[in-house]
């Protein structure tokens, strides 16, 4: 629409590769020009990545991070979705609980770290708790607004067809709110991925976040730092991409604008 002509097939690969190539070249040469001893060039990052893979550190760290995210995010979804639906469904309940949620929500999950350590000590459970906190609030908020945005005519139609309140919730409200709930889950997963790295830097001694901070602290191995960052980016991208696939499922696709 905006550009003059429709891009051709080859351009789909050409332009991204060109941009990535230029960025790598810029990085490589600025490391050479500034003659820095500490900051790694793309080549040494690649070597660092290979080293991590050889020592099998990388896989176990990735596994640890993913496990914590899965547990924390999963628990947040299991608790948060029903709670959010209930709050959206019963405005009176929402009125009572909402202020508490609004006060707790803006407290950065990172700020809970000391409290998490008292409750759970240093270890997996503290990290899982932090991820739970980080993803719980976005999920609840998305469910509440998803339910309250369901047009009243849908509810009336449901009642008209003689559905019981539970049936309306399951067969009308939930599907109608699903697109918004999915958006909330995706945001929550992004937050979870952000929090896990922070939590691993402070509260535990394994995982990708620990890899970043440990590579720096023990011997200024900045090639490993950047390699770990790259992995964090790639895995985060993969998680987001996986979640976007959910949005293309037929029964929720109506809720997303797909044409640009």
């Amino acid at each position: 629409m905006n550009s003059l002509a429709k891009p051709r097939g080859w351009e789909k690969f050409f332009w991204p590769l060109l941009a990535a190539g230029l960025l790598l070249a810029l990085w490589h040469y600025s490391v050479l020009w500034t003659a820095t001893k500490v900051f790694p060039s793309p080549l040494s990052v690649e070597k660092g990545l290979a080293e991590l893979l050889r020592k099998h550190v990388l896989w176990s760290d990735i596994g640890d991070s993913l496990r914590r995210v899965a547990l924390g995010f999963g628990m947040a979804a299991i608790v948060g979705i029903p709670l959010g639906l209930m709050l959206g469904w019963y405005p009176a309940l929402n009125q009572v609980l909402n202020p508490v949620l609004q006060i707790l929500r803006p407290i950065s999950p990172i700020a809970w770290i000391p409290v998490a350590i008292i409750f759970f000590g240093i270890g997996d459970r503290a990290a899982v708790f932090l991820i739970f906190l980080g993803s719980f609030f976005p999920i609840v908020v998305a469910c509440v607004s998803g339910v309250s945005n369901v047009p009243a005519i849908f509810r009336r139609a449901g009642r008209n067809f003689g559905l019981s309140p539970t049936q309306i919730l399951a067969r009308v409200i939930f599907p109608a709110a699903l697109p918004q709930i999915l958006i909330g889950l995706r945001i929550a997963l992004g937050v979870a991925w952000l929090v896990v790295v922070a939590a691993e830097m402070i509260a535990v001694d394994s995982g990708l976040g620990y890899l970043v901070i440990d590579s720096r602290n023990s011997g200024k191995r900045y090639d490993l730092v950047v390699a770990a960052m790259l992995m964090i980016g790639l895995i985060g991208l993969a998680l987001d991409f996986g979640f976007r696939r959910l949005e293309t499922i037929r029964s929720v696709r109506w809720g997303f604008r797909h044409e640009s």
Partner: peptide, 11 residues
Amino acid sequence: RPISPLAWIPI
């Protein structure tokens, strides 16, 4: 984008 900003701390 998905690189947690905190991972940039060493840099």
